[in-house]
């Protein structure tokens, strides 16, 4: 179980001279699933990277249990806070078991030997992600869905109480997306792992989030329960898109239906009717 508290206060950060995040505040609810959404290039990855100390903030700070993460020794931090980046690299020919075992890195040192605990962590990470059968296979021969499960297994082997994931479902088929999100939910439920992830798909975000955060142009536009956050106003502001938001009959969560310019049923009253000029163009 975890009650580590991760808080960002007045966070500004960016690359070289370009500031991407402008004074961002966020308290990550411990033991829950937080999902971050926002348009392309609004700073979601930059935010996760700053939260996990890959980027130093120019203003504000990230506090883990009240202590700045930039003052925490890197190995200690890596035992509490894990990150699965958007595009990790698998060394050519590496096997699944080998890759997953590299998640133990922060628990070892130059002279320490493998312990029973290390083996157990790898074993339970492989089992939890159902990648045990793949253990001897080279990672580069796996399907996208399998590979993503292997990366998650590696992050699990790190055994951190907080896990940040940057778009863990991108490039996956819908069934594999659901599989990955269910897996992360299981983890959250059974181990109490605090999950913070960036998701592309608003509906999946609303479906799996306990806490939903909408970023726009490097600021938190709105955050809270999926019902409070996923509204037609939010979608308009964050994505510049007109939409209908209804309630998903299966999950009871809000679900967003985009309104484009074409193929509208005549009865859709909230839709912006295409003007005759556009029709003729």
């Amino acid at each position: 179980m975890t009650d580590h508290l991760l808080v960002a206060t007045g966070l500004s950060a960016g690359y070289d001279d370009t500031e991407i995040l402008h004074g961002l505040d966020l308290t990550v609810p411990p033991g829950r699933i937080t999902v971050i959404v926002g348009a392309n290039a609004c700073g979601k990855s930059t935010f996760l990277r700053t939260l996990s100390r890959l980027i130093s903030p120019s203003k504000g700070q990230v506090l883990l249990d009240g202590k700045s993460i930039h003052r925490t020794p890197s190995r200690d931090l890596a035992r509490t806070l894990g990150l699965l980046p958007q595009s990790p690299i698998a060394p050519e020919g590496i096997t699944v078991a080998d890759l997953v075992s590299r998640g133990r890195h922060p628990h070892q040192s130059l002279f320490s030997r493998w312990t029973r605990q290390d083996d157990e962590a790898v074993d339970s990470a492989l089992s939890a992600t159902k990648t045990f059968e793949l253990a001897e296979r080279p990672v580069d021969e796996l399907s996208g869905g399998q590979r993503q499960r292997v990366w998650i297994a590696m992050a699990l082997a790190q055994q951190t109480d907080i896990l940040l994931l940057d778009e863990p479902t991108t490039f996956l088929d819908i069934n594999h997306q659901i599989e990955v999100l269910d897996l992360l939910t299981d983890l959250n439920r059974t181990r109490g792992t605090t999950v913070v992830m960036v998701l592309h798909d608003l509906n999946l975000a609303a479906r799996y989030a306990d806490h939903l955060v909408a970023l726009a142009e490097g600021r938190v536009h709105v955050s809270g329960t999926p019902e409070a956050v996923l509204t037609e106003d939010t979608v308009r502001h964050v994505f510049g898109l007109e939409s209908r938001v209804i309630t998903d009959p299966t999950s009871g969560r809000p679900i967003m239906l985009p309104i484009g310019r074409h193929r509208m049923a005549a009865s859709t009253d909230t839709a912006r009717e295409p003007s005759s000029k556009e029709k003729n163009a």
């Binding site: 996990s52 890959l54 890197s74 931090l77 990150l83 699965l84 698998a90 998640g103 890195h105 790190q158």
Partner: peptide
Amino acid sequence: LSRSRDLEALRLGDDMAAALGTR
């Protein structure tokens, strides 16, 4: 040789290496 473990971590990408506690 004293950095050999961190070099191994760097093979997974800079972000992953940092996430694993490598400076």
